[in-house]
Design a protein around this nucleic acid. Structure first.
Length: 665
DNA sequence: CCTTTCCACCTCATTCGTGC
DNA sequence: GCACGAATGAGGTGGAAAGG
């Protein structure tokens, strides 16, 4: 049944041959700057021309053995490289990121009677093993980035840590070498040469059996302009000098016999080992009972649905989760996100709505719409309302008073235009206001000012208004921009103030604004940024925050050189020595006090470098801190720096950042 | 005289490597 | 960790040189 090489009659492969690759359909680029964008479009998909496929196949076509020969293509496309396989002699396996072609491959190869497995997956999603032959023409120069990458020589440091980034064609070859005894690969000439020269690890050099330079126009029909070579790797080589290097001028001739070592025995089943979600087994195994109740409970911020009936579970989950989603095209999903409706099961989603209860009601309606009967777990609504109050309070801005001259201090003002200007400078036909015109303004609820011109209402911010108009009938003075939390929650504020007194904190936090700010910030349930000028007593505020909040374990993070100063400051205050601890060694971690001090440097340092680089002080302190105070908050400007990440890793319940310069110059 | 091949150069997003 | 610079390209173009 095997077709003759180099004869291209109509046959079973015809439907797949009709597919055109994305790369060959892509419009040509105008200059190099569009290269990367074009690659994102066509996924680096260029199919192998039949003549080259035949040439590559000719190296392995002579192998006859009394079992199925297992062939892998880790970027199979439309299966061009597998078209000379014989259902009675070969089992074919392939993956590709492009779903359309994969489905068609599976159908056509299956119909011919192949033992085959085609899956929609990137080569980064599989860990193939136990193949006899890998025939590959990988996408070139696509940047792979996945936590699932195998630890091959070609991997580098990536977004997900060490060995999580690689170049597609390099990775494809190394993966094939790992998975198969014999590898026939089509590569850019530069990569091919670096592999046989041993620049990509000794193993690829030792296994290299031949390099065949293809004509420069080999991929012209596919619309690609690249110099390529076919590289053949053996299981092993008897003598390195057996290496064959040749220039192919006639693609209609088979490759030379280079004495490949074919292994007649086989060990175990060939496997693609997909790392993605496996949908080959049912996800829902609950019995169908007809009980439509859906128990709605929560686990932290996650909303849990529990079911009594498998059918009901399927119906409800399908309508809530909607569909499976994947990261693609550089768009990375939040960790743990698999379904487009998953956000509906996150309580925080509802808390940020204008009306959280109504929004949550929609989730219950949605469950009801497919026959579910939602029942709230005892205490669920109480928890939900508590979280609502908490998030509402966190959203209220701190008290803010500003010195204003001009508009801003009244609800209705009139202004005289300083100079002739357009009402909306961004619009061409915008009406004009002439210098000296008088305009009446009304303040809106959002703080902007509204005025009418030729029957149309326009809006101006306070700053714009003051810039454009000389404002009359106002005086300058302090204006309260935001009332703040003390005014909104007077009872809680009073309770905090009496606590401050009871603890005697007001004895040493003796400037009036210090206690005011302390109470204001402590009313924030999860914390805030406190920007005080130098010399206002930030270190005292840090101590007061911990003491007044009543946290069991508070942590103050400071620069290492400031720890001494901090201790000196504490020495002057009526704070018992056994309340304070400076964390300097692993032993200190087991003995936390109410006030703990640590430096940024130590926080991100491994506790025991020899044992693990991952277990840092921050890691050991994770979730043990009730209230965290980060001094010199400007050090956290870069959210990806080690010290910022260490601070996040702590996951303290309440977090306060103190800084003298919140806005960098 | 016409066609093909070769070569230098263009341009810029992206990645990779290095020194501090 | 960070900033910065070098390297690179499933490329493209125009003109010179070589070939027929």
């Amino acid at each position: 049944m095997q077709r003759d090489l180099f004869s291209f009659e109509r046959d079973w492969y015809e439907p797949l041959r009709a597919i055109r690759s994305l790369g060959s359909q892509a419009p040509s680029i105008a200059h190099q700057g569009e290269l990367a964008a074009a690659r994102r479009q066509h996924l680096g998909q260029f199919f192998t021309p039949d003549a080259i496929a035949a040439f590559m196949w000719s190296f392995v076509s002579g192998w006859k053995v009394n079992r199925l020969i297992r062939i892998l293509d880790n970027s199979v496309g439309s299966g061009r490289l597998l078209q000379y396989a014989d259902p009675e002699r070969h089992a074919v396996y392939g993956v590709d990121v492009h779903a359309d072609v994969i489905q068609q491959c599976q159908k056509v190869f299956e119909d011919v009677g192949f033992h085959c497995e085609f899956r929609q997956a990137g080569m980064e999603d599989i860990h193939p093993a136990r193949f006899d032959i890998a025939l590959i023409n990988p996408p070139f120069s696509i940047h792979l980035e996945s936590p699932h990458l195998q630890t091959l020589e070609c991997t580098t440091w990536g977004r997900y840590g060490a060995r999580t980034s690689a170049l597609s064609h390099n990775y494809a070859v190394h993966q094939a070498l790992e998975a198969a005894n014999i590898v026939v690969a089509l590569l850019p000439i530069t990569t091919a040469e670096s592999m046989i020269a041993g620049e990509q690890g000794d193993r690829s050099k030792r296994r290299a059996a031949g390099l065949f330079e293809l004509p420069g126009d080999a991929f012209k029909l596919e619309g690609a302009n690249v110099r390529t070579a076919v590289v053949v790797f053996d299981r092993y080589r008897d003598r390195p000098s057996d290496f064959v290097r040749a220039v192919v001028d006639d693609l209609a001739k088979p490759g030379p016999d280079i004495g490949l070592h074919f292994e007649d025995r086989s060990f175990g089943e060939a496997r693609l080992r997909l790392q993605k979600l496996d949908d080959s087994v049912p996800f829902i195994t609950r019995a169908v009972t007809g009980d439509k109740s859906v128990m709605v409970s929560h686990d932290g911020r996650r909303i849990r649905l529990s079911f009594a009936c498998g059918f009901n579970e399927a119906m409800v989950l399908n309508t809530v989760l909607v569909k499976r989603i994947y990261s693609r095209d550089g768009h990375r999903l939040p960790r743990g996100f698999r379904y487009s409706g998953q956000g509906l099961l996150d309580m925080e989603t509802y808390l940020v709505q204008d009306d959280p209860v109504a929004a949550f009601g929609q989730l219950l309606d949605r469950i009801g719409s497919v026959g579910g009967n939602p029942q709230l777990a005892p205490g669920f609504m109480e928890h939900f309302r508590r979280r609502m109050r908490r998030s509402a309070r966190q959203a209220i801005p701190l008290r803010h008073v500003a010195w204003t001259t001009g508009a801003g201090s009244r609800d209705q003002v009139s202004g005289i235009a300083k100079e002739t200007h357009k009402v909306d400078a961004t619009r061409w036909a915008s009406p004009l206001i002439k210098a000296g015109d008088e305009v009446q303004f009304d303040r809106e609820a959002d703080g902007r000012y509204r005025y009418e011109l030729h029957g149309v209402w326009y809006h101006l911010s306070v700053d714009e208004l003051n810039a454009r108009f000389a404002v009359e009938n106002v005086s300058e003075g302090w204006e309260v921009v935001h009332e703040g939390l003390c005014a909104r929650f007077p009872d809680q504020a009073a309770a905090l103030r009496s606590r401050v007194k009871a603890l005697g904190v007001d004895q040493w936090l003796d400037w009036e604004f210090q206690v005011d700010d302390l109470v204001e910030t402590l009313l924030k349930p999860t914390g805030c940024v406190v920007a005080w000028e130098q010399g206002c007593g930030k270190s005292r505020l840090a101590l007061a925050l911990i003491l007044v909040s009543g946290a069991k374990h508070g942590l103050i993070v400071v620069e290492s050189r400031l720890i001494e100063e901090m201790l000196k400051e504490i020495g002057q205050l009526p704070i018992a020595a056994d309340q304070v601890k400076v964390i300097e060694s692993a032993a200190d971690l087991g003995d936390l006090r109410q006030i703990n001090l640590i430096s940024y440097e130590r926080l991100r340092m491994p506790v025991d470098k020899a044992a693990s680089a991952r277990v840092t002080y921050a890691h050991r302190l994770r979730r043990r801190i009730g209230l965290l105070v980060a001094d010199e908050g400007e050090r956290l400007a870069n959210p990806t720096s080690d010290q910022s990440r260490a601070l996040w890793q702590l996951s303290a319940r309440r977090r306060f950042v103190l800084t003298g310069s919140p806005i960098p110059n």
